[in-house]
């Protein structure tokens, strides 16, 4: 059976969530693998959420915010822009492949961009295969 990755997506309420809505309204087809969790701002996304998602069995995590300069809260996305690269550097050390975590920017008018990011990420994570959940293994010593 083909492996279908589970990807947790975080979208900010003002830009990327609306972009995702627009993809639907425009009936664009996209991979169903990304399941979106709405936060008010990408700045709310704690690195803990990302590691928690992996701990719970996600194969990838996608964080989408407003483009630089477009943040509804003026600069929340800049905080995300600082946190995610450091988190990715840490996760790389932990053996988590680069493609499993993605930070990107989607405006409310970019339904097509949302679809292409979701499809691209799904394809890449599918190619990587499942993220082996180490914590469960750890429980057995």
């Amino acid at each position: 059976m083909n492996f279908e990755p589970k990807i947790v997506g975080f979208c900010c309420n003002w830009c990327s969530y609306r972009g995702a809505d627009l993809a639907g309204t425009a009936r664009m087809k996209c991979s169903p693998n990304v399941r979106i969790i709405r936060v008010m701002c990408s700045g709310r996304v704690e690195p803990t959420f990302v590691v928690k998602a992996f701990e719970l069995g996600a194969d990838g995590v996608l964080v989408l915010g407003c483009h630089a300069g477009d943040c509804h809260y003026s600069e929340g996305n800049y905080k995300t822009m600082r946190r995610m690269p450091l988190l990715k550097k840490m996760l790389a050390q932990m053996g988590i492949e680069e493609e499993r975590v993605r930070l990107d920017w989607v405006s409310a008018s970019e339904g097509d961009r949302f679809v292409s990011i979701v499809d691209d990420m799904t394809a890449k994570v599918r190619a990587l295969g499942p993220f082996k959940n180490n914590s469960k293994e750890a429980k057995h010593g």
């Binding site: 700045g43 709310r44 809260y73």
Partner: peptide, 8 residues
């Protein structure tokens, strides 16, 4: 305004 940036 409830953006949550400080929380994270």
């Amino acid at each position: 305004k409830g953006c949550g940036t400080c929380v994270a």
